[in-house]
């Protein structure tokens, strides 16, 4: 009781801070200098139609690299944390078989979902979406598989290889940017092509695709680890 009350008091204070921010907030009427630059220059410098993708992969690519590493770390640590109690191949509790609707539905939907995911990250530079979104969709397909058959295991080795290769490609493209273009993660190592084509925007689709695969692999790995835990 006392605790809730004191928490309320604290949050009132925080709320006051937020209210001050909210009341002082005036939306811009024109783009600020950074946004304006992106609006004007994205097409000519990066060749990407999706400005957000250009920002994420090229202009602020270092952030994305960090973000990808965050996921990598999370997956690795989840594996570390759960591995110490995890016993592979142990007799699991027999589950009742999944309903027929679910099983058929899984078989129907999973390829479609995978297709959607791949589409999203391949077209990341043209339409809303990109590697992370596509990867998440891929992972949701994996989740559906797991829900359909909880005893299913994924090959951790395959996941690890996909993760590592994707990461290395990302970093490798970045290094290529240092040697062959303006700087680290400059996407002009590959030709920019014409705006709106699938094969345009230099290295962005390549990077984004591998990011998508990496994210999908990492989410799947996390899901697999969490699913593989014993019932307590």
């Amino acid at each position: 009781m006392v605790k809730s009350f004191s928490v309320l008091v604290l949050l009132l204070g925080i709320g006051a801070m937020f209210a001050a921010l909210l009341l002082g907030y005036v939306p811009d009427s024109e783009l600020n200098q950074t946004a304006r630059y992106y609006a004007d220059k994205t097409a000519s410098e990066t060749g990407a139609a999706n400005i957000v993708a250009a920002i994420v992969v090229t202009y602020r690519g270092l952030d994305t690299l960090g973000e990808v590493t965050v996921l990598f770390l999370s997956a690795a640590i989840v594996g570390l944390v759960l591995a110490s109690g995890h016993q592979q191949g142990k007799m699991r509790h027999a589950q009742p078989p999944s309903g027929e609707l679910l099983v058929i539905g899984v078989r129907l939907l999973v390829p479609l979902i995978l297709l959607l995911g791949v589409y999203v990250f391949i077209n990341g530079h043209l339409t809303p979406g990109g590697g992370f979104q596509g990867g998440a969709i891929l992972a949701s397909a994996m989740l559906l598989l797991l829900l359909g058959d909880p005893l299913r295991t994924f090959s951790h080795k395959l996941i690890a290889i996909v993760e590592s290769i994707s990461g290395l490609v990302f970093v490798g493209m970045g290094i290529l940017g240092i040697f062959y273009a303006g700087g680290f993660l400059d996407n002009r190592v590959l030709p920019l092509g014409t705006l709106g084509e699938v094969f345009s925007a230099g290295a962005i689709p390549i990077i984004y695709s591998f990011v998508g695969l990496k994210v999908g692999a990492e989410f799947s790995s996390m899901l697999a680890n969490l699913s593989g835990t014993e019932e307590l």
Partner: peptide, 10 residues
């Protein structure tokens, strides 16, 4: 990085 100058790139 990214062949652009700050503040438009990191």
């Amino acid at each position: 990085t990214a062949g652009a100058v700050p503040p438009f790139a990191i």
